[in-house]
């Protein structure tokens, strides 16, 4: 079945120049391995097509059950140069939570993920 990240995680995003960072935090620690497996930098780069023009880096923080993504060249030049409403990437957090991932019925059942 397909599950939207909004059901599995919360997030916070911010900026460093033209790079947006998105911290993705598992709502329950049991979800963390699923996020590590499914939310790869390649998938995130693909998800942000049309927004992120650079590369996507991913860092793992197992201690916080969280992943940190750096989306390079995503903020229209960044800071005061950017013309975007969201020049600081504040809402990139929710943009990532729009992503859908595939979870087998068995795994969803074991993790208590509801359809």
């Amino acid at each position: 079945m397909r599950v939207q990240l909004l059901k599995l995680a919360h997030a916070r995003s911010g900026d460093k120049g033209d790079t947006a960072n998105v911290g993705l935090i598992a709502l329950k620690e049991e979800y963390y391995p699923l996020l590590v497996r499914e939310v790869t930098s390649e998938r995130v780069k693909h998800h942000f097509e049309g927004i992120c023009r650079g590369r996507v880096e991913r860092f793992e923080l197992p201690n916080l059950h969280a992943l940190n993504f750096l989306l390079h060249e995503s903020l229209g030049g960044g800071g005061t140069l950017s013309l975007m409403t969201d020049a600081q990437g504040k809402t990139f957090s929710y943009a990532l939570l729009r992503m859908w991932i595939d979870v087998s019925e068995t795994e969803a059942g074991a993790l208590g993920i509801e359809r």
Binding site: H10, A11, R12, G14, D15, K16, N21, G23, I25, F59, L61, L64, A66, N68, L70
Partner: peptide, 16 residues
Amino acid sequence: VPSVKEQLLYEMGDPH
């Protein structure tokens, strides 16, 4: 814990 986690990840680069 969730509110502190969110702030920890704010404007984070390489966490190491």
